[in-house]
Design a binder for these strands. Structure first.
Lengths: 348, 348
DNA sequence: CCTGGGGTAGAAAGCGCTTTCCGTTTCGGG
DNA sequence: CCCGAAACGGAAAGCGCTTTCTACCCCAGG
């Protein structure tokens, strides 16, 4: 059982077959079919190309990866894919990766940093060209150290690492300017006459949640308004719903004239909770979000929010990760801009 | 430069290092660390495990793939990821894959069958354990033949192929019972008093679109009602918006009492178009969708739809693909059920 | 006519792992 | 007490490809 024809799980012709059929050596075939800085004579070149075409040759990616030491793959980690924020980013990542001839492997971290760490370890052993980490960074996380070590080791060996949405540990990052965006929103709200806001958002350890809260608070305060309440829960639709229920049930909702959610899905959950309680969002109380996901403009009332170009964020992160040359360390800050809609009408 | 210590792009310790440190052969180390049906004595076993731990050994996936002939990977193809239908399915796929210790690589086909074909070819050369094809199948597509050939060749060599959402060519599939779901919806609508429906949906070559239309039409007809208009466009939010605009602009919208969209995002686009024209969805005209995506219950009025367990669909497809044993050929039909909400009130 | 050098082909050494095939050791049974 | 089987360790042959290093050919220049 040691003939040269033992192909168990593989299929299709190998490079050796192509070389044989073209009557050239393996090396020559490889040089023709997979760019090399060495030239191959026209005659041989044609013979190889012809043989490859005739055999319908396809390179074996794992073998190439093994020989080259790196796979044509971009690894993307997201908290969840079932959320417009992440799927928009993933969409941009996929687009750019495709344009670079890379495939995308995706891992879901479920907002669990232990899982995030083990996913990074697993993905790393696939030898991807780049690892994109997209999920809200938190402060004081016990796994952050190990994660950074892992990432740095990765970059030390030629891998590219990019954080999306938040910078971390001096590695490359493409970030949202949450504070500025939130400031803008706060200023607009104050300008519209709002005075007391309830902020419903994620854990205080979530940097995104904190940044947005801070921006909002400072802008409001600077305009004589205030963040009167802060209610926290998960950073998703359900969290928004629950925060709002609690505010309603505790009777404290009456103290505010606007509910500022940490993101659009929370805002949408909030609106549903309000309506269930007979409170009309946009009429009895204003509601705002962040991100400007597609459905923000489809709910009623249309949602006031801070738009961030999410797909573009993914695209740029990927482009950055795949750019040739030095892995220029630094943060790219993406600006958001306020989109005023019906959910926050001018107060009379 | 030909020492045994030339590790260019690789990092970390290799299995050889572990074996050396444990004072055993490569074979033994491999047998201990990566299950094999051969037993290893307790003493050596412990030495290897200890060495691996001390060195923080991680297997090189491409190398394992190459040696084993298959990668611990599930390849998923979706039309787009930036759509709740697909991201919900992807989410289920990722979950199940993770539970099986597999990673997911994803490719976006942009509803373009040529791209779909080339993606399958590319993904196939990664030697994934399974390929999951999720995107609406169309009739009469020039690339379907080549795609099927590709898939069959894949399965012939031990790969698993599963279509999600629609069966094709006798390969395994996990499908939605669109016709039955649509019939159910049609019957309910008729029962609520609706008589003339406008169906806004995708191309007549899209099987999903056709099946839902047929089900709706037959149920309505059977109840003395009718599908009075059919307007087609892309199968997404924008398509729904545009279809509705056209119906409004042409004045034909007055002929119907309900707009049945081919899916929820189209329905949501339709509601927005209606509102822009001063028509109140759920009051002046009913609107329905399909799938029951998360936001269906968050829009106003809440959307009547046919619920399909999408994440579960993804999970089951993956489980099926990863199940040991025979690749039982057949279709799994997932039933939907009608969810009546405010967007289709009983007609007085 | 010989030599050096540019250009191109091929042989072969890996890349890190799995697995077959042997060899050795150890035991239990006759 | 001997033999065969069972149990386990190791050498080595791949898996399909890249890339270095050597070999060769041909031509210009001395």
């Amino acid at each position: 059982m040691r003939s040269t024809r033992t192909r168990v799980s593989s299929d299709g012709p190998t490079l050796t077959d192509v070389a044989t059929r073209a009557g050239v050596s393996l090396a020559t075939a490889s040089r023709v079919l997979n760019g090399s800085n060495r030239k191959v004579g026209q005659v041989n070149r044609d013979r190889v190309l012809r043989a490859a075409r005739e055999l319908d040759y396809r390179p074996d990616l794992p073998a190439q990866t093994m020989a080259r030491g790196t796979a044509p793959v971009v690894a993307l980690l997201v908290s969840t894919i079932d959320d417009p924020y992440f799927s928009a980013i993933a969409s941009g990542v996929a687009e750019s990766a495709d344009a670079h001839g890379m495939t995308v492997t995706i891992a879901i971290t479920a907002r669990d940093s232990a899982l995030e760490l083990s996913s990074v370890r697993l993905l790393r052993s696939q030898r991807p060209r780049a690892i994109l980490l997209c999920g809200s960074r938190t402060t004081n996380d016990p796994h952050t150290g190990a994660l950074l070590t892992e990432m740095r080791r990765f970059t030390a060996h030629g891998g590219r690492a990019v954080f999306i949405g938040q910078s971390e540990g001096g590695l490359n990052a493409v970030c949202l300017d949450n504070v500025a965006g939130a400031c803008g929103l706060g200023a607009e709200l104050a300008g519209l006459g709002y005075r007391r806001a309830a902020v419903i958002t994620g854990s205080e350890r979530m940097r995104t949640a904190q940044e947005r809260l801070q921006g909002l608070a400072s802008a409001l305060t600077g305009s004589g308004a205030t963040v009167a309440l802060v209610e926290r829960d998960t950073f998703d639709r359900t969290g928004g719903y629950r925060c709002t229920r609690r505010l309603i049930d505790s009777g404290r909702l009456g103290e505010v004239d606007v509910v500022c959610a940490g993101n659009d899905v929370m805002a949408i959950g909030a609106m549903t909770a309000l309506r269930e309680a007979g409170i009309r969002p946009g009429r009895d109380i204003a509601v705002t979000g962040f991100n400007d996901i597609d459905t923000a403009a489809d709910v009623t009332p249309k949602l006031t929010t801070v738009r961030f170009p999410l797909a573009d964020l993914g695209r740029r992160a990927t482009d950055l990760a795949l750019a040739p040359g030095d892995p220029a360390v630094g943060d790219l800050l993406v600006e958001g801009h306020v989109v005023l809609r019906d959910s926050s009408p001018r107060l009379r």
